[in-house]
């Protein structure tokens, strides 16, 4: 088999079928961009999980003068209630789930609040006694939040038990939904791309049926007959995948690291380098879709 001959056949095929080639490139480009976007979202979710899960805690808020829950009807938390809670945290039953815990007084809560909302006028209207003191508990296994919640929420002096992780979970589940939607759209687009590639190859094979008939007649192997068609499809898909890679890199560079990271300095965003890991995956996916689709299409028309 002569590579130059195969290459020449591909170029010939592309020249005669240029508009179809371009349409395959564009459809693959759009579908793989969605795949890439879904991949980026998943990477972002993992990145944020890794970053935040180390920092999130279960907060046991204690009754303050402004508390309105039933558990706080007897007034703000007393010293004795605080000590009891500390004892409970140190008891064997609870300790096995807890890494460590800190007590955050109302003054400390106020200091943190001021720090977090430094630029907001809300700081001026809040006083330390409006903020509850709390125990900040780091769990060994963040999934065991329920045990802490059950043990502490009905204890005297406890206003509420809040798992910060659950707040994040809502964000992550929204991002997950977005990535599932992106994957769904990508799947439909991939089906479109596969069908379009099949149609293009079939058309290409039909346009070159005289050549393939002669090839079969003089004893060309199946590989030599089919390879130019398959490579045409693969080439179109790979060009589409490269465009898609360019698009996701642009999203990462200009939107994520260029804009969002600047706006939300507290949040860890994926880097351009991490996004580049998706490129080989997209190219491989494009090539596989095109290869399988053309192989499947060519089984009949060139075998007769």
């Amino acid at each position: 088999m002569r590579p130059m001959f195969i290459f020449g056949e591909i170029v010939n095929g592309l020249r005669r079928n240029l508009s179809m080639f371009i349409s395959v490139v564009l459809v693959t480009f759009v579908s793989l961009t969605f795949v890439g976007a879904a991949g980026m979202l998943q990477m972002q979710i993992n990145q944020m999980k890794g970053y935040w899960y180390d920092k999130v805690q279960v907060a046991i808020f204690l009754c303050s003068p402004g508390s309105t829950t039933a558990n706080c009807s007897s007034g703000p938390v007393t010293k004795e209630q605080q000590d009891n809670l500390r004892k409970l945290l140190d008891s064997d039953a609870v300790r096995q789930y807890v890494n460590d815990y800190q007590f955050e007084s109302q003054q400390e809560a106020y200091a943190h609040f001021k720090e977090q909302f430094a630029n907001s006028p809300i700081v001026d209207s809040v006083t330390p006694d409006q903020l509850p003191s709390s125990f900040r508990v780091n769990l060994k296994d963040p999934q065991k939040y329920q045990i802490i919640s059950e043990s502490f929420s009905s204890q005297p002096g406890v206003e509420s038990v809040i798992d910060q992780r659950q707040i994040l979970e809502k964000l992550f589940s929204a991002m997950n939904t977005a990535s599932i939607v992106a994957i769904g759209i990508a799947a439909i687009m991939i089906v479109c791309a596969a069908l379009l590639i099949a149609t293009t190859i079939r058309l290409s094979a039909f346009m070159r049926r005289k050549e393939t008939a002669i090839m079969r007649l003089v004893g060309a192997s199946k590989a030599v007959i089919q390879l130019p068609f398959i490579l045409e499809g693969v080439l179109a898909a790979v060009v589409g995948a490269l465009l898609a890679s360019g698009a996701i890199w642009a999203i990462s560079h200009f939107f994520l690291t260029g804009y969002l990271a600047d706006q939300y300095k507290q949040t860890a965003f994926i880097s351009d380098a991490q996004t580049l890991w998706l490129v080989p995956a997209l190219i491989a996916l494009g090539a596989v879709i095109a290869g399988v689709s053309s192989l499947f299409t060519l089984r009949k028309p060139l075998n007769a």
Binding site: M1, R2, F5, E211, I214, V218, G219, S221, V224
Partner: peptide, 8 residues
């Protein structure tokens, strides 16, 4: 030549 090229 095509007949020879396709068989390598």
């Amino acid at each position: 030549a095509f007949a020879m090229q396709v068989i390598g």
